[in-house]
Amino acid sequence: MNMAIANITVVSHTYFYLLGIPGLEDQHIWISIPFVAFYIIALLGNILLIFVVVTDHSLHEPMYIFLCMLAAIDLVLSTTTIPKAITIFWFNSGGISLNGCTTQLFFIHATFVAESGILLVMAFDRYIAICYPLRYTMILNTSVIIKLGIAVYMRGAVTIFPLIFLVKRLTFCKNNLLPHTYCEHIGLAKYACASIRVNIWYGIFVLLITVVLDIFLIVASYSMILHAIFRMPSQDARHKALQTCGSHICVILLFYIPGIFTFLVQRFGKQIPPHIHIIIANICMLAPPLMNPIIYGIKTKQIKNSIYNLLFQRQK
């Protein structure tokens, strides 16, 4: 009997099927409508933002260059997840190889960490602009901007890259049906036969040294920024300084609040139906790319003027 058990070969799945939103399969077509609309708006908005910043020399300042980096990250984040979700909704085409799954989860988590890093850099930019305005261009020169951008992108890639090996070492013999619209680390790892303790602890470690640390530093930066603003003698100067930070604060809240809510729901919301988990997770992927260019386009006068000139002045 023992010999028979020992001779059993465990077959590991190398191909998976993303099911979309289980329980709402008959509504997939209707759900796809806002997905497609929001994805197109996100694509056009971020491409337009990048084009305006690159072509308008008056926007070649640190704040707008960092915004351009944020738009590029948003394009990668949305394109990594939404097109696959749409093919599931339209054609029930949820098949994905293990290599494809690990590639998708790498880009999802790496761009999430990178976006958090860009938001931290933008908070640092606002801190220098308000607290050290006379030294702003000297501190944030072209060399520093390039180094910060490379550091942000590299941090996302380097911290998430080990997840590929942590996932590929696992044997997936339980199930190859993934109740989601995209592959994510723990969502895939929990279908492994072996222990995933290392995966869980490494995921927590990455979260602590990236996103949690970024949140702490952003809060510290804005504490010093607000302290400096309320010490300004002129009310107009205080209003202008707060206005320059308004767009960034909106983007920060839009990025972190859904993410924190999703984390809490996954850990403690056991009574919440699975389709609600999946819908919230997709909102986290789509909301920042959709809203970031809209927020900056509406609240930033220079960008608004540049877009107006691009769209209307050239038609005359």
Rank of each mutant, 00 (worst) to 15 (best):
C173G: 13
C173H: 04
K174N: 11
K174S: 04
N175F: 02
L177P: 01
L177V: 03
L177A: 13
L177S: 12
P179Y: 12
P179F: 12
Y182K: 10
Y182M: 14
C183M: 04
E184S: 14
E184D: 13
E184L: 12
H185C: 05
H185F: 15
H185V: 15
H185P: 02
I186R: 05
G187C: 00
G187Y: 01
L188Y: 06
L188Q: 07
A189P: 02
A189G: 04
A189E: 04
A189N: 08
K190P: 00
K190I: 10
K190C: 04
K190V: 08
Y191R: 02
Y191T: 01
Y191C: 01
A192L: 05
A192K: 05
A192C: 06
A192G: 05
A192W: 03
C193M: 11
C193D: 12
A194G: 12
S195T: 14
S195M: 10
I196H: 00
V198I: 14
V198P: 00
V198K: 08
V198G: 00
I200K: 03
I200E: 03
W201H: 13
W201N: 13
W201E: 11
Y202E: 01
Y202A: 00
G203C: 02
G203I: 00
I204L: 13
I204A: 12
I204Q: 12
F205H: 10
F205G: 08
F205V: 08
F205M: 12
V206M: 02
V206S: 04
L207A: 13
L207I: 06
L207H: 12
L208M: 14
L208W: 11
L208Y: 11
L208D: 06
L208P: 01
I209N: 07
T210H: 04
V211D: 11
V212I: 14
V212D: 00
V212E: 01
V212H: 03
V212T: 08
L213S: 15
L213K: 14
L213Y: 14
L213V: 12
D214A: 14
D214C: 14
D214W: 06
I215F: 10
I215D: 06
I215T: 11
I215R: 08
F216A: 15
F216Q: 08
F216N: 05
L217E: 04
L217W: 02
L217Q: 07
L217F: 08
I218S: 06
I218E: 05
V219H: 05
A220T: 09
A220N: 10
S221R: 09
S221K: 09
S221F: 15
Y222G: 08
Y222Q: 09
S223K: 13
S223M: 11
S223Y: 15
S223L: 12
M224L: 15
I225R: 08
I225D: 07
I225P: 06
H227R: 15
H227P: 00
H227E: 13
A228L: 07
A228G: 05
A228R: 15
A228C: 13
A228P: 05
I229Q: 01
I229K: 02
I229V: 12
I229E: 02
I229G: 00
F230L: 09
F230A: 04
F230K: 12
R231Y: 10
R231Q: 15
M232N: 09
P233Y: 09
P233A: 07
P233S: 10
P233M: 07
S234R: 09
S234T: 03
S234Q: 08
Q235I: 04
D236P: 04
D236N: 14
